[in-house]
Design a protein around this nucleic acid. Structure first.
Length: 192
DNA sequence: GGTAAGATCAGC
DNA sequence: CTGATCTTACCA
């Protein structure tokens, strides 16, 4: 069920739980789909490389990458092996383990700044390169994707993707409308 | 071997 | 709006 095109999986990951083995838990409130080798904005656009190899592996595993010389971001691989499809987790709402997150994000004065961005949530939850490729469905793993009784929103907010320079018109970003942890207010263009 | 750009963030 | 900071990937 996770093995599908990333733009179909992405909105369904909203309200799912990202869980660390130490009790830190975040509810996913913002995602972006990167659709593989045909997506000019994706890290997979030029095929498999050393860095993006996990994107071409099995669905349900993590793809973590280092960028701008200082930040880690994480994706959920969604396609069949060889597809290169993944969903970037752009924001979560902390629901447990806040006391462990705050020390990791000492620059964040307000709790809302703990996890309202793709690199911020990784810093808060301690996600780095050592999580690259881990199976998010492994119940004994260090990082897990889970669901509870809170279903994905029936009508999620939607907009163009953030921070990219190619294929900027596609509306492959989804978020929980009104959630304070969403990283950016929807851009006028392409927002709803 | 050199280099440009990068799925970001914080501070001015 | 700009600086930080450095890995990756592409090109010669």
């Amino acid at each position: 069920m996770l093995v599908e095109d990333s733009d179909l999986v992405a909105p369904r990951l909203l309200n799912a739980l990202l869980c660390r083995d130490d009790g830190r838990v975040g509810r996913i409130v913002e995602v972006e789909a990167y659709r593989g080798v045909d997506d000019a904005a994706s890290h997979a656009r030029n095929g498999m490389t050393g860095r993006n190899a996990p994107m071409f592996g099995p669905a349900g595993h993590a793809y973590c990458y280092f960028t701008y010389g200082m930040h880690w971001c994480m994706n959920v691989v969604t396609g069949d092996p060889g597809d290169g499809q993944a969903v970037l987790i752009r924001a979560v709402e902390p629901v447990a383990g806040l006391d462990r997150m705050r020390p990791m994000r000492s620059r964040a004065r307000r709790d809302v700044d703990l996890t309202n961005g793709p690199a911020k949530l990784c810093e808060a939850m301690g996600i780095d390169g050592s999580f690259d490729g881990v199976d998010l469905c492994d119940t004994d793993g260090p990082l897990r994707l889970m669901s509870d009784d809170k279903f994905p929103p029936r009508r999620p907010g939607r907009s163009t993707r953030i921070g990219i320079t190619r294929d900027v018109e596609r509306r492959w970003r989804w978020f929980v409308t009104g959630n304070p942890y969403v990283s950016k207010a929807p851009t006028r263009k392409g927002a709803r």
